[in-house]
Design a protein around this nucleic acid. Structure first.
Lengths: 233, 233
DNA sequence: TATTACATGTCGACC
DNA sequence: GGTCGACGTGTAATA
């Protein structure tokens, strides 16, 4: 990894055009060739970047700027990717330029919450709605698996979409699933329930207008809950 | 900005649990206090991070690990944010530790984001379709604002959804808006037009099946265009 | 503060 | 190569 601290200006031309005026920044070049330009603030996202694969051309040279003064010396990196996007870094003054061999990273081990939420609800469907019993988790359809398929007290089929954050596109997803289930006439009536830790207001409106109910569940509470079978006593 | 190259292991506990085994990495600490741990590859996203605001506690000390060997010396950073998420960085060996004063960044100037595209189209709706005139930009509805509402030559209301990239969810969005507009019977017939710099094949198919038209517009061309009023002569 | 929609989103899985 | 769905999404604007 190469780390350059420099006063620089930057131009990106690709999906959009972006320009960074001259200032002091960190330029990070990783072993895979990706380049990122960081300011001294603003979370982890760089101001500008170019992901691998790309090619870097380093230009040194004098440029006749048309004035009577001595020619301006330029030091410029031109980073290009196969999509012909370019990142042009003009280095006005290099304060530091170091490189370190880090080796390949063993990688991140994650233990997620979101898959867990679905597990917990599968174990305790009554937490979604009184009297609900599980038919199948990850119920397969042609357009993807439905998180939970249940039956309610009246034996009506209930399709459940589970999200950590209840956004509007989750409701769209549920809509597509229900549409699909309704093609299978053997199932009879089908209801939809949208479940999330937080359901956004717009998602509530859309869910209701589609005839779905929505439920907000508390993860910690759910985790403390015993499976339905055990709770009968 | 402080840059530490170190052999380290990392644990994050918060929205999920994540662990990084011991390896050589870059630890970046910015002036606003945010911390990012980078491997030597994998685009610009760090393996782990903690955004500002947060507090860093640096621990030095000996730990009795229970063995007969000499106690293990530990050097550990514990980063905590107000939401009680924690990032624990254990430094096994520090290869380099430098700091640089960068100052505040003048910031990024962007050109070509969706807002610009919408502005240009609002100024020149005829670029979307001949004879189109603007009724209102950001037309408000209960489920969000419609990018552009226009009328065509026959005075029919036309709802326009503008996207930089024409994906399938943009068509869904337009569908919801039209659904909503049709509840307001005073508007009469309503057509939908999906506008983007590039419309993906699936989005084209879906738009057509919904009875919408789709249009691909060139940003640079649009920018060179004069507003409709001026173009009448 | 909360709510919304955009993002050069990024990233992985699957087809 | 494309689409789809999730992300510790982040981020800025707006109410």
């Amino acid at each position: 990894m190469r780390l350059v601290i420099a006063r620089c200006s930057v131009d990106y031309a690709g999906k959009l055009a972006a320009h960074l005026p001259e200032a002091n920044r960190l330029i990070m070049v990783k072993a895979d060739g990706c380049v990122a330009i960081h300011a001294d603030g603003g979370a982890y996202k760089p101001l500008n970047w170019m992901n691998a694969p790309n090619t870097v051309v380093e230009e040194f040279g004098d440029v006749d700027d048309g004035s009577d003064d001595a020619d301006t010396s330029v030091h410029r990196w031109i980073v290009t990717n196969p999509k012909k996007e370019t990142l042009t870094i003009t280095l006005h003054e290099v304060m530091s330029d170091t490189a370190h061999e880090l080796g390949t990273d063993p990688g991140l081990q994650k233990d997620g919450v979101e898959a867990h939420l679905q597990e917990l609800l599968a174990a305790s469907p009554a937490a979604i709605e009184d009297g609900l019993t599980l038919v199948r988790r990850e119920y397969p359809t042609a357009i993807g698996p439905i998180d939970l398929v249940c039956r309610d007290e009246t034996d009506t089929v209930v399709a459940v979409e589970v999200k950590r954050r209840g956004d509007i596109d989750g409701v769209e997803q549920l809509t597509r699933y229900i549409e699909r289930l309704k093609l299978d006439s053997s199932l009879g009536d089908i209801r939809g329930v949208f479940v999330a830790q937080v359901v956004k207001p717009q998602a509530k409106v859309l869910a209701e207008s589609r005839g779905f109910t929505w439920v907000e569940v508390d993860y910690d509470e759910l985790r403390g809950m015993k499976p339905d079978e055990l709770r009968l006593f």
